[in-house]
């Protein structure tokens, strides 16, 4: 049973969904921090993350791309923060966007950041492209009280269908071909939750989206993008 927004729903598990280990998930405080967030037309995922971020927080955005999430969080949430990005063109875009960016390779860790120096570390749609998944999650929780990750749900039914028909999935959230994809560690909601359980990561909130819409029913099947807010297991 997972409690979402105070309501209790029973997880419906279709016969072809792999059972998820329930990893001590408490979702009752979901959207507790939510205040009106300025809409950003093309990026409902930004709003989903911003809803979890306290105003004025110190934020580290790993794999921050062109810095537009950080800029959004700064404008919507008045956060102070830094992005970490390896790609030259993205670093330039971050400067154009007027956000702080540190050019660095996440795979080599976050040694330049002091332990506990952030309120949130965000890994937005980057987890699946990381070589050292365990290492980066550990580092996130070293430098920050809380981590926020989002990733494309490999368990989304359209992905499964393509695999059933004998092809690697190509979709809105997984727009690459098998041979040119940067995504090397794709997972489902269930996989990620099991990972957290095994690695001493306490999930605080989960949000699953399909385009602009939150998904509460059969999220591992119907959700395209998954968001988790988590902390170190006490």
């Amino acid at each position: 049973m997972i409690a979402v927004s105070g309501a209790t729903i029973t997880r419906i598990v279709p016969y072809f969904v792999r059972p998820m280990p329930v990893a001590n998930i408490d979702l009752t405080i979901m959207t507790a921090t939510a205040a009106p967030i300025p809409p950003i037309a093309s990026r409902p995922d930004f709003a989903a993350i911003a809803a979890w971020v306290q105003p004025g927080a110190r934020v580290l955005d790993l794999g921050c791309g062109d810095g537009s999430l950080l800029r959004y969080l700064r404008d919507a949430r008045n956060v102070r923060g830094y992005g970490v990005e390896i790609d030259d063109a993205n670093v330039l875009q971050c400067l154009n966007n007027g956000v702080n960016v540190i050019q660095s390779d996440l795979e080599s860790g976050l040694s330049g950041f002091e332990s506990g120096s952030f309120d949130y570390v965000i890994l937005s749609q980057t987890l699946q492209a990381m070589k050292h998944t365990e290492g980066i999650v550990r580092e996130m929780l070293r430098v920050s009280k809380e981590g926020i990750v989002s990733f494309p749900n490999f368990g989304y039914w359209k992905n499964r269908l393509q695999v059933v028909f004998g092809h690697m999935p190509v979709s809105e959230t997984l727009p690459y071909q098998w041979f040119d994809t940067p995504n090397i560690h794709l997972c489902t909601l269930g996989d990620f939750e099991a990972f957290c359980h095994q690695h001493g990561v306490h999930i605080l909130e989960r949000r699953v989206m399909n385009g602009d819409h939150p998904v509460s029913l059969a999220p591992n099947l119907l959700g395209m993008l998954a968001f988790y807010r988590f902390e170190r297991q006490q």
Binding site: R58, R80, Y82, D88, V91, C94, L95, N100, V101, I102, Q103, S104, G112, F113, E114, S117
Partner: peptide, 21 residues
Amino acid sequence: SRTIIKALLDNELNVSYAEIT
């Protein structure tokens, strides 16, 4: 330069860092 960055981050100063090939 990364040593400098570390000190600036520790003081929560606005900083950007680029490592140019």
